[in-house]
């Protein structure tokens, strides 16, 4: 499951059934609200998101395991804040200048980053990639001079082709190792021996992809009819708005 982080997980939960535009708006609202949240409100919001992820089919433990590298990064954020912020010493150890204020600020920053990551995870595991791409396209449409369809397609292709390029790189690495590249003492040679063929293969793949997309009529303006939001969508939007407001009030209080 950890390998499938940020990929769509089919399901029939209420979150899966919500309009993607509502979920995108909710992600935006949660991300902006997180900037103003205090410790208690942040803990509440994190717990709520973990519960919602569990409802969408991602148990809290699996979520945390899948996010382990991200959590490590957050731990580094907390440590660096604790060590670099001046204030009341946290421990009576002279060579470890960690401060209580630094720890608090670090925890707050890490909590906010985790909140945004969990909200993003909730969005991606409950939304079909195509629907997500279409919603991004819908959001970009009113912005002048932005080729909304191309931008949305690029996002989709990036997601699709990262694993392809990585497996091509792995294949090339194996082929180079079979020809004793590890014995080479020139790091630049090792780099170019992998980089140049990989770049050539990637461009070749891009060329073939262009032909295949053209063959399937890509290029024409896509007319997508968006259904208007239903009662459930509006109710969810209102609920998210109320929750954000309540969390802000709790932080102020």
């Amino acid at each position: 499951m950890a390998g499938l982080i940020f990929s769509f997980q089919p399901g029939a939960s209420p979150l899966h059934r919500l309009d993607v535009r509502v979920k995108l708006a909710a992600l935006l609202a949660v991300s902006l609200t997180s900037l103003q949240l205090g410790h208690a409100a942040l803990a509440l919001a994190l717990s709520a998101l973990l519960l919602l992820l569990a409802r969408a089919g991602w148990p809290p433990l699996s979520t945390l395991v899948a996010l382990r590298w991200y959590l490590l990064l957050l731990a580094i954020v907390v440590c660096s804040q604790a060590l670099t912020t001046a204030g009341e010493p946290l421990l009576p150890i002279s060579w470890l200048p960690a401060s209580r204020q630094g720890l608090e600020v670090g925890l707050l920053s890490a909590g906010r980053l985790l909140l945004v990551a969990l909200a993003g995870l909730l969005l991606t595991v409950t939304s079909r990639p195509a629907a997500l791409r279409a919603a991004v396209e819908w959001l970009l449409r009113p912005i002048p001079l932005v080729p909304h369809r191309q931008a949305a397609t690029m996002v989709g292709l990036l997601v699709r082709f990262i694993p392809v390029i990585l497996s091509q790189a792995a294949e090339l690495k194996e082929a180079l190792r079979a020809r004793a590249i590890e014995e080479s003492r020139r790091p630049l040679r090792r780099l170019t021996a992998l980089g140049l063929p990989l770049l050539r293969r990637t461009f070749l793949t891009a060329d073939r992809l262009t032909a295949a997309m053209e063959a399937r009529c890509y290029g024409a303006e896509l007319q997508r009819d968006w259904p208007s939001l239903g009662t459930r969508d509006w109710a969810a939007l209102a609920l998210v708005g109320c929750c954000c407001l309540a969390l802000l009030l709790l932080s102020l209080w």
């Binding site: 195509a130 793949t205 032909a211 295949a212």
Partner: peptide, 30 residues
């Protein structure tokens, strides 16, 4: 392009969807 459907030699570089369903829907959506 609708009348003549073309299947290329390298399947990997003609699959554009993030899921099997999305890939098959690519042409009809276009």
């Amino acid at each position: 392009r609708q009348l003549v459907g073309m299947v290329f030699q390298d399947a990997d570089s003609q699959i554009v969807g993030e899921t099997v369903y999305d890939d098959v829907a690519f042409g009809p959506e276009n």
